[in-house]
Write a protein that binds this DNA or RNA. Structure first.
Lengths: 195, 195
DNA sequence: TATGTGTGTAAGTAGCTACTTGCATACAGT
DNA sequence: ACTGTATGCAAGTAGCTACTTACACACATA
């Protein structure tokens, strides 16, 4: 791992803990085990460094796929949702900082929002596919269901450590319950096994 | 409105736009139309001022009530949810900043989280009440439904301007649709009117 | 008229910030 | 052995930050 990557990784870490103004070049240099001057030699300015660090981090590929043709909606949605929740939870500090910087640094948000937008679209198509393949006769808007599930997962991933008293317990059962309620809400019957 | 309140109001405004580190005493003084020294005479330090400002703002009473005994779940939940969404939306900048400051200033979060926690509990009791009064026979966890609705509303309030392409449209129909899907998901039949 | 209270003004302090410059050094390729 | 490249190090600059001190003034009350 060369110097440039070390600096980028350190910048992401420091930014996700301290935000933009709190990410001093001194702190980033220390975290990267590098001289402060080296940062300016590589990136020219703090702004340029942090912008590149955040963009790089928010373009990591992700993610579990949902099948084009649904087979077992409950199982498929559950494992997809758990993967998304874990991913959001791992990046929760960075996401919070990006959201906090919205007014002052909107270009960071343009990067950070792309993952959730793509996830919502993936979900939306899946719900359309569910109707097309006869899993439901309901005429509910697939975007409504997609937004609800994304919102719920996001809320759980970001908020559980902040306010555990307002979250269903245990954590491991939460996502399956979300999915079950949602599928019933759009009129998809359960596949087999009781209860 | 006396000097002290002017300063507090200005502090809230500036903080919700610039966050903690961006809320310089100079900026707050300008926004309050007051000399910078006056701030220190009243509050002693920037930390003390911002802590008081945020606490004051997060203890505003709120909010529409949900009835103890449900009459028309769909109507009651819809208007309650719309009120909460509007409230969250009005404070979205402040909320984002508080969330962003979580790691460095947890005491701010202790204030800011109380409103959503209370709202979730209100919802949770309402869903229990729905079952107790025979609106549903489902055995779903009321906390699951409460968290889903709160998460969905929160996501809509905070995220719609950020990523409108991932939200159901029009905005005015969104909350009624969320509520309808959720009620169906927990087995509450619609009251009367078709469609 | 005298006095206290609230506020503004001017100036200053110590520390931190992003960023620059100049030089030393270590190491790789030729 | 020579040279370029990557990095560290020491020092410095200009600007901002929270916060302090000392003084002036305006106004209300006694």
């Amino acid at each position: 791992m060369d110097t440039r990557d070390q600096i980028l990784a350190a910048a992401t870490t420091v930014f996700s803990q301290h935000g933009f103004r709190g990410s001093t070049t001194r702190r980033i240099a220390d975290a990267a085990g590098v001289n402060e001057v080296t940062i300016f030699r590589y990136f020219g300015s703090k702004d340029a460094l942090l912008e590149e660090a955040v963009r790089l981090d928010s373009t990591t590929p992700l993610s579990g796929l949902l099948p084009e043709v649904p087979q077992d909606p409950e199982a498929e949605l559950t494992s997809w949702s758990e993967a998304i929740r874990d991913h959001l939870h791992a990046k929760r500090s960075l996401i919070r900082k990006c959201m906090g910087e919205l007014e002052e640094r909107p270009e960071m948000m343009l990067c950070a929002k792309q993952a959730p937008v793509r996830s919502t679209n993936t979900l939306c198509k899946y719900f359309e596919s569910l109707r097309k393949h006869g899993f439901t006769q309901d005429e509910s808007d697939p975007m409504v269901a997609a937004t609800m599930l994304m919102g719920t997962i996001f809320h759980d991933a970001m908020g559980r450590e902040m306010m555990p008293e307002a979250m269903p317990k245990p954590q491991s059962k939460a996502v399956p319950q979300y999915v079950r309620l949602l599928l019933k809400g759009i009129g998809v019957k359960r596949k087999s096994h009781t209860q």
